[in-house]
Design a protein around this nucleic acid. Sequence first.
DNA 1: CCAATAGTGTCTATTAGACACTATGAC
DNA 2: GTCATAGTGTCTAATAGACACTATTGG
Lengths: 243, 243
Amino acid sequence: MVSEREFLDGYDPRDYPAVAVTVDVVTLTIRDGVLHVLLVERGEQPYAGRLALPGGFVREETLDQAALRELAEETGILPRVHLEQLATFGDPGRDPRMRVVSVAYLAFAPRLPDPTVGGDAAAARWVPVDDATGLAFDHDAVLAAGLERARAKLEYSPLATAFVDEEFTIAQLRGVYTAVWGEEPHAGNFHRKVLSVPGFVEATGTTTERGGERGGPRSKLFRAGDARILHPALLRPTPEERA
Amino acid sequence: MVSEREFLDGYDPRDYPAVAVTVDVVTLTIRDGVLHVLLVERGEQPYAGRLALPGGFVREETLDQAALRELAEETGILPRVHLEQLATFGDPGRDPRMRVVSVAYLAFAPRLPDPTVGGDAAAARWVPVDDATGLAFDHDAVLAAGLERARAKLEYSPLATAFVDEEFTIAQLRGVYTAVWGEEPHAGNFHRKVLSVPGFVEATGTTTERGGERGGPRSKLFRAGDARILHPALLRPTPEERA
DNA sequence: CCAATAGTGTCTATTAGACACTATGAC
DNA sequence: GTCATAGTGTCTAATAGACACTATTGG
């Protein structure tokens, strides 16, 4: 933290200009097997008409609360959303109006209704992550950081269960990995692996009402287990940069 | 980021009071086989006499530059230091004087000279992490986050090489894992494992001048390799919480 | 029947880890 | 010589992944 000496004596408004602190939220969900991110369309300068991550000023609240509030304002009530701090972006000039330090958050949510409620929601929409380029400010970099975090966390945390409904099939869980990693794990091996990791999923004892669209047996249904880390982990087929 | 509407119309000083942005740095090193953290003694209220992480205001610079600058002010020139952003702490009330949002950084350094140069260095010193409790502000939590990050990163990144000199023996590298994890990996298996991970270390072709203090063969010397991630990873003996 | 999918069986290559062993060199 | 340590050999259990196969069910 700031030292007393600097705080009392060294303070010079020219060295320490007014700083605004905001939160931006990278909210990911899966729709029709494709990973989407929640974006809002900017109405005014700068970056008018461009898409941006939803966000806003931090008020008299914790940073976590600020992120949750912003998310709720954009999407209405959010059940079972997982939210975690991602990273903080504060380069001078990232906002042309003033110095803005933005604490980015990452949210994972099961399939959500289209955002039509409250706040800036009129302009909010889900965009496939592959189409989410040319965002306002440095939000391309923020999104990229969020995606890389999400891909990495699928490996060693049971986070995939945050993308599906409360009860889900192994195939739906596999669909999460396919959408986020962009690569489909081998169905049979994935099935056995998921069941073998302690605490990842637990059986409900029930099955789906019907088989697949074009036939097939009914799937057993599962709930998220109580594990907070996966051990052993489900490693990505292609292990790439994780710095 | 902040929406234009809120920025122009919704701004209310009572909602968005003045915020100070600082960086705090968790600097870790190993001295005599024990993990130490760099702390400064506070001279004034609040928390006068208590130990705290070094840090200070962010100026007209990037957050990374601010962290590097603070670290240099505390310790003098820092060769080969690894620095990465850790997390941001911004609870209201974490500083009793005003709203302070602090971006915490994590630094790893090889054995350093005692900090005696410039800045607040007169009061700076290395403290074994086990003794670093009761810190000022919320710095206990910041330090804990830094330690957990360090422990996790040893598994899948070649970060251990940031704690040793440019040329090092496998035993010295093992000492890093022992100090950070608090548990000694099996010497023989560790040796073979380190050499088998592509890009972790590369042989220099030279050996130490002498064997150990109480005898033993000379060790081969190694340099850090070019890998940025370890694959396969070196897993901790006891896989615990990683959220 | 046919196609698609859930779930299981089985085999192989790789790896972690336990343990043992040899060689070196300071004292 | 003694003893701690560097480095290697070897065996076993666990695991990832390839592949094959059976069972189920919608069309």
